[in-house]
Amino acid sequence: MCRNIHQLHNFQPPATAEEVHAAALQYVRKVAGAARPSQANRAVFDAAVAAVAAATQQLLDGLVTSAPPKDREVEAAKARARAEKRYA
């Protein structure tokens, strides 16, 4: 799957609407095979992004876990360390 889509569940603070929308946009772009739709496809592209974002938010709202929430800063630091090691 697309590397730009990040885990959104079980973080403190919870994922924002902007993060959910960004993930939905990346997913639809990947599936459609286009970063920007043509004028003819704009309406269906935007509707798909809205539908995926709504489904994603519903999923996040319904998920239950007993694990403690992850800290965004700690996870970001881990990702940077992995990137440094991968691209060094």
Rank of each mutant, 00 (worst) to 15 (best):
L59F: 13
R3T: 05
Q7R: 15
A17H: 05
Q7I: 04
A47V: 08
R86T: 13
H9E: 14
Q12F: 08
Q12V: 07
R3E: 07
A35I: 00
V28L: 06
A15M: 11
V20H: 00
R86P: 08
Q26G: 02
F11S: 11
Q58L: 03
L63M: 13
A24E: 00
V64P: 09
A32R: 10
R42S: 07
K30C: 06
V64K: 15
A76L: 15
A34Y: 10
E18W: 02
A32K: 07
D61G: 11
S38I: 11
S66L: 15
A88C: 07
E75W: 11
G62I: 01
A24G: 04
H6N: 09
N4L: 07
R42E: 11
A55L: 12
T65P: 11
V49W: 01
A23D: 00
A67V: 10
V31I: 15
A77D: 10
A50Y: 03
Q26W: 03
V52R: 00
R29S: 02
Q26D: 06
I5P: 00
E73I: 08
R82G: 06
F11A: 11
E75G: 09
G33P: 08
K30M: 05
V44P: 07
A40Q: 09
Q39K: 15
V49C: 05
E84V: 07
L59M: 13
N4R: 14
A81F: 10
A76S: 15
T16V: 04
E19G: 04
D61K: 06
K85L: 10
K70E: 03
P68L: 08
Q26L: 04
A53S: 12
A17F: 02
E19F: 03
E73P: 01
A43K: 01
Q57V: 01
A17C: 05
V52D: 02
A67H: 13
E73L: 10
D61Q: 13
E84D: 13
V49H: 02
R72W: 07
A50W: 02
Q12D: 10
L25G: 00
A43F: 02
H9C: 05
